[in-house]
Deep mutational scan, measured.
Amino acid sequence: PKDEAKKKVKEAIKRGDEETAKRIAKKYNLDWDDAKREADEER
């Protein structure tokens, strides 16, 4: 599900692992900028 994928993307971003985050986002066709902004807001 997309929500689960987005959570994984945000967790990867918070760990500083943007490569993984981008790969997950691409795989699930998520909006990378959107997920990154959300992760930054939660930090």
Rank of each mutant, 00 (worst) to 15 (best):
E19K: 10
E38F: 06
E41W: 10
K36G: 03
A5S: 03
W32Y: 15
K6L: 15
K10Q: 11
P1M: 14
D34P: 02
D17F: 05
E4S: 09
E18T: 11
K2A: 13
A12I: 03
E4T: 09
K27I: 12
A25P: 00
A12L: 15
K10G: 04
K10S: 06
K26T: 08
I24W: 07
K8R: 14
E38S: 06
P1I: 14
N29R: 04
D31V: 05
D31I: 05
D33C: 13
A21L: 01
E18K: 04
E41L: 13
E38Q: 07
K8V: 08
K10E: 05
D33K: 06
R37L: 07
A35S: 06
E18I: 15
E18A: 05
E42T: 08
L30D: 00
K6T: 06
V9W: 06
P1L: 14
E18P: 06
E11V: 04
R15G: 04
I24L: 14
D17C: 12
R23E: 11
D3A: 13
A25G: 00
D33E: 14
L30P: 00
A12P: 00
A5Q: 06
K2R: 14
G16P: 00
A21I: 00
R43I: 14
P1K: 13
N29V: 02
A35N: 04
D34Q: 13
G16V: 02
W32E: 02
A12E: 02
E19C: 11
N29A: 09
K2F: 14
K26L: 13
A5R: 03
E18L: 15
K36S: 06
K7Y: 12
W32R: 00
T20D: 08
K26R: 12
K8G: 03
G16A: 03
K27A: 13
D34S: 10
A25F: 01
T20K: 06
E18S: 06
D33F: 08
K2E: 12
I24C: 07
K7T: 10
A39P: 03
Y28M: 02
W32S: 02
A21C: 02
T20E: 15
A21T: 00
K27H: 08
K6S: 06
E41S: 11
K14M: 15
Y28F: 10
K7M: 12
A12N: 03
K6I: 14
E4V: 11
A35T: 11
R43A: 13
E11G: 03
K26A: 14
A12Q: 02
A39D: 05
A25R: 02
E11Q: 08
D34T: 13
A21G: 04
R15A: 11
E42A: 08
D3W: 13
Y28H: 06
A25Y: 02
E18R: 05
A5Y: 11
A39S: 08
A5E: 04
K6Y: 15
K10P: 01
K8H: 09
E19Q: 09
K27E: 15
K10T: 07
Y28C: 04
R37N: 07
W32F: 14
A25D: 00
A35V: 15
K2Q: 13
K27Y: 14
R15M: 10
E38L: 07
E19I: 10
D33G: 06
K26N: 07
K26P: 01
K26Q: 12
V9D: 00
E4D: 12
Y28K: 03
V9G: 00
K10I: 15
L30R: 00
L30T: 01
R37V: 06
D17V: 01
K36P: 03
K6G: 04
E41Q: 12
K6Q: 07
R37K: 11
K26F: 11
E4C: 14
